[in-house]
């Protein structure tokens, strides 16, 4: 005999199990990295340059490099992505051409990051002659996160109720005024969500910076955007696989710093988003 209540309990159990399966690995990763990495964290580790062939000292240049790269990527990708999203959601007509563009953007988000790295090498490093530099790396990371920013921004813009636009237009506001004063302010929380996602990805990727900026070992800070820089994900790769006899503590400490950096940057964006959400009035 079928008992509908039991079916429901079984369904709930499976759904709960699936959720648990997602949470456990995430929790484990954090616990292991904190457990093994935290002992390495001290002022010297964060503020000193790597010493003794990266087996001692700190990781300051890599932290600075990653901050520069992520900032550069956002400075490049956010304005362009946002403008493209505004065009696609507010101005473009719905036809085959724009649908192809939208499809291409969504698919670009799925392109492997190493392909972006190769693209950045060909375009920025070689063709534009920026060399392996913070500029090339930032632009490559920026292009990599553009699809994420465009897609989420578009969704944020389109989720602003259509009636607000009609009201604004019916009062004689121009289309641009309507976008600028009604649509955009109400889409900011969603746009920031896209930025957070892009930011995390830009900070963590190794492949795009491999050919375009990352230095194996550079004991001083970059002086300009045309300098090479160390970066945390690549540094982590180097000390984990390329340099023998690196203390485990240092490897996990580096991972911990990378994780903390991404979390701190996300936190800033989340706080801004929360501020804007509170202003949301419908």
């Amino acid at each position: 005999m079928k008992n509908p209540y039991r079916t429901q309990s079984i369904a709930f159990a499976f759904l709960f199990l699936a959720t648990l399966l997602i949470v456990i690995p995430v929790g484990l990763i954090v616990v292991i990295i904190v457990q093994k990495g935290l002992p390495a964290i001290n002022w010297q580790f964060i503020s000193d340059i790597p010493r003794q062939g990266m087996r001692a000292g700190g990781i300051f240049p890599a932290i600075v490099g990653t901050v520069y790269l992520v900032t550069g990527a956002i400075i490049f990708a956010l304005p362009i992505g946002l403008l493209a999203a505004i065009y696609l959601s507010e101005y473009s007509k719905d036809n085959l051409f724009t649908r192809l563009i939208k499809l291409a953007i969504v698919n670009l988000a799925g392109v492997p990051s190493v392909v972006y790295g190769l693209f950045g090498l060909a375009l920025f490093v070689v063709f534009f002659k920026f060399g392996a530099s913070i500029l090339s790396g930032s632009l490559t990371l920026g292009i990599m996160i553009l699809p994420v920013i465009i897609t989420t921004s578009r969704e944020a813009l389109e989720s602003v109720p259509y009636s607000f636009r009609e009201v604004s237009l019916s009062l004689g506001a121009s289309k641009w005024q309507t976008i600028r004063h009604i649509v955009l302010p109400n889409a900011i929380p969603g746009i920031l969500t896209g930025t957070i996602l892009g930011l995390g990805r830009a900070a963590g990727e190794t492949a795009p910076i491999l050919f375009t900026v990352a230095a194996f070992y550079l004991p001083q800070l970059p002086n300009s955007i045309f300098d090479q820089a160390m970066a945390l994900p690549y540094h982590l790769y180097v000390i984990s696989t390329q340099v023998p006899n690196v203390d485990e503590k240092i490897r996990y400490g580096t991972a911990f710093v990378l994780l903390a950096l991404v979390l701190i940057m996300n936190l800033v964006a989340i706080i801004i988003r929360y501020k804007f959400r509170k202003r949301k009035k419908w």
Binding site: S163, F164, E166, V167, S168, L169, S170, L171, G172, I182, N186, K280, K281, W282
Partner: peptide
Amino acid sequence: LRRKIGMVFALPLPLP
């Protein structure tokens, strides 16, 4: 034109 011709909609639609 839309400044000269105002409109009040079916549902009350205040802006946020």
